[in-house]
Design a protein around this nucleic acid. Structure first.
Lengths: 241, 241
DNA sequence: ACACCAAGCAGCAAT
DNA sequence: ATTGCTGTTTGGTGT
């Protein structure tokens, strides 16, 4: 335990990224309150002092602390407690450690950022540049525009010159997407004192959402998910088969 | 590299939970497409075959694969590639490994589930049992009820017997919360053919949301966040100071 | 399986 | 800092 404490504190003070495996219980108190009974988990502390507790299953950490937390190890007789505090967020986490399986730490050298294609912004860009996909005669005017009643993905005029608001969804359009569109349409009608049309552009729409959309006189425009990243020849790889 | 391959494959076949640190690049193709240039990261593979790539900063993994993926290590001359595939989700991830810093794995014994208090359900329970917090004279009838137009947190009758729908939010009530409430109110008016009131119960509301709420004749009821877990004396601990 | 919704949401951009 | 909104959202619940 003393060895563990020394290694952990050294790693923390050197801004290493740390992972250890331990049998433990976890207590959390902050935005909510939670307790996790005894079991084996991996604990990660990053160089920005974010902390993650991972069980052997599932995509998400079972407990965590935000970056900028303070971590203190308190030794008991044959156990120890890792206390994580974030006073500014009023969040506190306590890992009662019964047994330590291993600890590794390392100064990670990584300044890279993920580049990603195929998000909703790409989709509204795509529709802005290919307006006939929304509907024939659609003339886009603006996209990604902030208003008091929300943030418009895309708007323009239809073939008859009527103001038209388009809300994009990458996958299924649901009830929330319809109410979102409706809010934008109403806001624009109120601002511009004229009739405004609403179009929901997505690959799919749920039955309930479709009914609500039609109740409100809006239109669904089936649109494929946005294009993928173009990659040069050197990045052609094992994906193709 | 051959040693790494042998250890990784052994750990995978024994359903260990694995963590290794490596200098690598990451490619993802699936719901979107992404590329992460070279850097040092931790990679975790869980016993359910979920995979996470963590950079030294930030709360969330920079890349990941869902549980049930298949992982294969392909050896090159002085490097190797970890290929993760999820055919049913059509997702593919490729980690091109330049250097390995360490690998640890372990069979984690953990059947525990997190117990959590202070979520939105607790809040609607609390208001159901203490209806005067919503407003004087409010008589709750039902909560957590599914309808065609959505899911009602709480509804009942006000002091004058008027049907009243309550939407709860644990923190800030925003524009989306107002449109959600509005959808429920309209649905219930349509179903019951009578006037229905709407109340948004939350600790706070944004200025824009408040304006929209009032435009629609709804009311904001300031309500404290829900109660925390009660803990017995044996669990009184280091949090208190 | 689909749909709807909360999340200790996180992270980002714009005000 | 607050607000609004997307997310390779995740995870849970109900139909």
């Amino acid at each position: 335990m003393e060895k563990f404490k020394a290694r952990l504190e050294n790693a923390l003070s050197n801004n290493h990224t740390i992972v250890f495996s331990a049998r433990c219980t976890v207590d959390y108190k902050g935005r909510a309150e939670a307790f996790l009974p005894e079991g084996d988990r991996f604990v990660i502390i990053k160089s920005d002092k974010a902390l993650l507790v991972h069980q052997p299953q599932g995509n998400t950490p079972v407990n965590y602390m935000k970056p900028g937390s303070r971590h203190t190890l308190i030794l008991d007789d044959d156990s120890c407690t890792l206390l994580s505090e974030n006073h500014s967020l009023k969040e506190y986490l306590e890992i009662a450690i019964k047994d330590i399986h291993f600890l590794e730490s390392r100064k990670l050298d990584d300044n890279s950022k993920l580049s990603l294609a195929g998000n909703e912004r790409d989709m509204s860009d795509h529709l802005f540049e290919n307006p006939e996909l929304v509907e024939p005669g659609f003339k886009p005017v603006s996209r990604e525009e902030q208003t008091k009643y929300g943030f418009l993905d895309l708007w323009g005029k239809d073939e008859n010159g009527i103001l038209t608001v388009v809300e994009c969804k990458r996958y299924l359009a649901d009830l929330a997407a319809v109410t979102q569109l409706r809010r934008y349409v109403e806001r624009m009608e109120h601002e511009k004192k004229q009739k405004v049309r609403g179009i929901l552009a997505a690959p799919k729409i749920s039955a309930n959402a479709k009914k609500m959309l039609e109740d409100w006189g809006f239109r669904f425009s089936p649109v494929d998910p946005p294009l993928r990243l173009k990659r040069d020849q050197s990045q052609q790889n094992l994906f193709e088969y």
